[in-house]
Design a protein around this nucleic acid. Structure first.
Lengths: 196, 196
DNA sequence: GTCTATAGAAAGATAGAC
DNA sequence: GTCTATCTTTCTATAGAC
């Protein structure tokens, strides 16, 4: 066999990485399989040895994108739980996130794109969305010296995070983007009782 | 002249109404000019007598859609300013809005769709977004007997409104949608100090 | 202004060589 | 597994008759 299993796995990963970047910045329809494969240094025809359709790679890209997001990472030892949570919020609601300087969160970058897609894709979104809320809740419950936000406050917070980033990407005016992000950062801290 | 000016204006309005409905529910790329014109009881070829391109009708549809949104309407006489504001919030963050039972807000239905579109389209979005925030601010300033929310609190509120509706449309699970909307309704009322 | 017909480009997916 | 070539469909936009 001229190609090892290892090789295939790496190629798949390259395709998936390209998919995260391209789908996040341009949406499902504006990325062709040709472009996707070229970005991964391959040609059209090789695609179907790895995924069965465009929808399939899109769904996998959402999952892979979520896993790359900082919010799923381990807390650095030198930070307290609350410091880490604040760090994540500030990073999420930042210009660098909007301009894709670091790994974009598919929940925000692809919200309406996904609403227009197939049932299986929306099921994937739903699963990841629940995980995000749960993760934040668990993280916040770790500090006993602060009033714990309830489930509703977490839902409201993530709606503001996702909404803030999604709107920021649609806007055409730096100053407004800055105001929006500032406002959301402040309001999320307050909602989660993380102000001090 | 076999067609009056009046006729043209009405035809244009029919196309625009179809555009709002179809673009909102399926996004820019998933609506073809053919489908759009059929929905308006016309054929492909007639389109270019009214709009110069697909992007052009899309941008106009965003504006027309925003004008149809309840939030730009006049307050009914029998309601106080705050009651009216609460009404709008509850309607915006409702299942009926998500399922498009009434006129969808393009700011929420098309956020990421617009982020992936041309500069002029994003400029249109930005303009309407600013108007929404301003409108809410003005409305809230009318009641002198309540602490006035500042600009930041209004920005945070609209981020939650738009985020809540956009996420709700991407979700695949009735119960989660309900929780999400409940949470956002409660949090927006609190942010705007409208609880009583 | 609206129709039918069509030009011209692009995209998803498959076939077969290596 | 990856390549090139191609089938087939779909779409935007234009041309020309009425």
């Amino acid at each position: 066999m001229p190609y090892s299993k290892e090789h295939k796995k790496e190629t798949r990963k390259k395709i998936l990485d390209s998919a995260i970047t391209l789908f996040s910045s341009k949406g499902f329809d504006q990325v062709s399989i040709d472009e996707l494969m070229q970005h991964a240094d391959l040609t059209r025809g090789a695609f179907y040895a790895h995924f069965e359709s465009k929808e399939a790679v899109y769904a996998k890209a959402i999952i892979a994108g979520a896993k790359k997001s900082r919010i799923t990472h381990q807390k650095p030892k030198k930070l307290t739980e609350d410091e880490w949570m604040k760090d994540l919020l500030m990073g999420y609601l930042s210009e660098d996130h909007i301009t894709q300087k670091y790994s974009p969160c598919p929940l925000a970058f692809l919200v309406t794109d996904i609403a227009n897609n197939k049932k299986e894709v929306r099921a994937t979104y739903t699963r990841i969305y629940k995980i995000l809320n749960k993760t934040i809740q668990i993280q916040l419950d770790k500090n006993p010296e602060r009033p714990k936000p309830n489930e509703q406050e977490v839902f409201a917070t993530t709606a503001m995070m996702i909404g803030g980033v999604a709107i920021g990407r649609a806007l055409n005016d730096e100053a407004t983007i800055k105001d929006l992000l500032d406002s959301c950062r402040k309001a999320t801290l307050s909602l989660l009782k993380l102000e001090n």
